[in-house]
Every structure is written in C-alpha cells, then in structure tokens.
C-alpha cells in the first residue's frame, strides 16, 4: 500500500486533532526546514526517526535511526553472516567416529601385525594351501602409517567381517550342495571365523592349524567372538536407524541434529507468545524450537522449524512449506547449548 501526501495529511489530522490547514502548513514547514538545513550543509535529525542530509552529489538522502532500522527489519535483527561448513572438516571425522563406534576400541590391528611378524619369522613351518588365501588380507594392513592405514585397516577388517557373516548365513546351502565335494577356501574361512565346525573336512583343517601355531588359533577365537556379537548388534542398529531420521522437518527434536540449520518462521519480543506459536506448530507435527537472541539490548525470541544438515536442505524444505511460511522465512544455524 502506498500512502500519498493527501492520505498522510488525513492521518496526521486524525492523530493530532489539528485543523487540516494547520497540518498542511506544519508539513510544509517541516519539509522546508529539512531542505534548508541540508542546504546549509547541515544534517537535520528527527530524533528516533532519522537524519536528512545532502550527499556529495547534492542529492537529498535519509539515514534511518538505529531504532527505526531495527524495527523495520525486526524479523531479521541480530542475524549475522553464517559461514558455510567446509565439507572436509565434516566428512573425515564423522567417518572415523562411525568406525570407532561400530568396531570399538579393541580393533584387531595389533594381532594382525603380530601375526604378520610371526609369519615372516616362522617361514620354515609349512602351511596348508588353504591359508595363503586368508593371509593376504591380513598382510595388507601396514602398521607404520597410523592415521590413514589404521582407518583402511579397520575398513578392510569390517569388510572381512561382513563378508564372513554373509558366508556364514549362506553356508548351509553351500554345504548341502558343494561341501561334500570340494574344500572351498572361503567356506573354510567362514567356519573358522564363526567357530562353527560342523563339516568334517573343516574340523580337520581347523585342528591342523591349531596344531601348527597356537597364536593363529588364538586370533581365530578373538575374531569369532567379535563377529558373532556385531552380527546381532548391527542388525539392531540398522533397524533403529531406519525407524527415525536424524534430520528433518517433522517429528521430535533430536539433540544430535542441533549441529545443523533450522527455518525461522516467527520472531517475537515476548517469549510466552513465541512458546505459544511453537506449541501450535508442534501439534501440527513440526520439530519446533524457540531460541533467543539479544539485538541492541532487546531480547528477541525466534520460532524455527526442523533440523537440517545443510543450508540447501533447509532451503529446499523451506520452499515447500505452506503459506505464508514458504515465502516468509529465513534459515539460521541452530545454536548449540
């Protein structure tokens, strides 16, 4: 809506109870004073409103006061530029964390290197043909490079565990069809890892191995302990992870997702009012948060929706929000407490 001079005079007349002619005269007088002051090279300030002055090009300019600027841009007051997350910093540590969480602290890297050294030293002892197939996997994990090699070793170990577990679950079918005919190396590994020695040929091989080197049998026992537990736990974890997503617009707030972004849809001076609106939005199924910011000494309460991993994710969802939120919003980084 546009307020023109005529409408402004009407509004001023209503507000001041002055005669229309008086209001017109006073408005003209005000404009005249502003121009005069500016013309004399002075700025005329209307307190708590702004400053009128002529700039270097001789054009009349207006600089709103801080109070007026804050009030006009109240919704966005106090917002500062948000640095976008560099991908490198986020991707690598997360992978490490996930690996350490899944595998645990007692990773079998040390036994592998011990075994490596022991196998190198004890070359004279003859090995059955089935063993070299399992050894290259162990030899591939160099001990010297701690940072990357440890990660790769863990990944390789996990893949071996997964491979072993897959073989374990598929084993009954294989033994029925093939087990009686040939001694399959992967099957043999599988039985060693899982500790299930139902097949006669496999038990024989297992006994031979244990006779030759006691260290290896110990390692095999450790592996078997570890494989059996993760098989159940990993299944449970995968079931849990599919039930609820970490980031999203709807559902309950998840504390771990507070490292991301949310969509601000309301700003209030009053915390109670902000909480009321947030509660209403919560009942509609949104993840809502009320956060406070101090802007120019004034506390502002913002109601935001959702938890998103990145700004583009939040932006995409913000565009699909119902009116008026889809056009009247902004994205902020969630304040971690």
């Amino acid at each position: 809506m546009t307020i023109d001079r005529k409408k402004l005079i009407e509004l001023l007349t209503d507000k001041t109870d002055l005669a229309r002619e008086d209001v017109e005269a006073q408005l003209d007088q005000l404009i005249e004073r502003i121009i005069d002051a500016a013309d004399r090279g002075k700025a005329l300030e209307i307190k708590e409103f702004g400053l009128f002055f002529f700039d270097q090009d001789g054009e009349l300019k207006f600089e709103p006061s801080e109070e007026l600027s804050t009030e006009i841009s109240f919704k966005y007051a106090g917002m500062k530029p948000v640095e976008l997350k560099p991908e490198r910093n986020t991707a690598i540590p997360r992978d490490d964390d996930q690996i350490s969480n899944i595998v645990g602290d007692d990773v079998i890297v040390v036994p592998k290197t011990d075994q490596k050294s022991s196998t190198e030293k004890s070359k004279p002892t003859p090995k059955p043909k089935s063993e070299p197939s399992s050894k290259p996997i162990i030899k591939k994990t160099p001990r010297k490079k701690k940072d990357r090699s440890a990660v790769w070793a863990i990944l390789a170990f996990i893949s071996v565990l997964i491979f072993g577990s897959i073989l374990y679950f598929n084993r009954p079918m294989n033994t029925i069809s093939d087990g009686s005919i040939e001694v399959n190396e992967p099957v043999q590994q599988d039985t060693e890892i899982t500790g299930l020695t139902e097949n006669d040929s496999n038990t024989e091989n297992f006994e031979e191995n244990s006779d030759e080197s006691g260290e290896e049998s110990e390692i095999e026992v450790q592996i078997s302990d570890e494989v059996q537990i993760p098989n159940e736990e990993q299944m449970n974890e995968s079931e849990v992870s599919t039930q609820g997503e970490l980031y999203g617009l709807t559902g309950n707030l998840i504390e771990e997702a507070n490292d991301g972004y949310s969509i601000v849809v309301h700003s209030f001076y009053n915390e109670f009012r902000a909480s009321q609106v947030a509660d209403n939005l919560s009942t509609e199924g949104y993840r809502t948060q009320v956060t406070s910011r101090t802007v120019g000494g004034i506390e502002v309460w913002r109601v935001s929706l959702g938890q998103f991993e990145s700004i583009p994710d939040a932006q995409e969802v913000a565009d699909s929000l119902p009116e008026p939120y889809n056009e009247n919003n902004f994205i902020q980084r969630i304040q971690q407490q």
Partner: peptide, 27 residues
C-alpha cells in the same frame, strides 16, 4: 513547529513503514 505534529509524523511513518507500506510526499 508543533511538538505534537512532529511526534504524530514520526509515529504514522513508523507504523506504515513497519507494515512495509511506502510513503510518497509530493515535492
């Protein structure tokens, strides 16, 4: 110039600008 007028002028302009209305004063 009347103080009441200045006060009313500020208030009216502020009210409408906060509502994102534009105000055009000829001249």
């Amino acid at each position: 110039m009347d103080t009441i007028f200045i006060k009313a002028f500020k208030e009216i302009l502020r009210e409408h600008l906060v509502e994102k209305n534009s105000i055009e004063i000829d001249g």
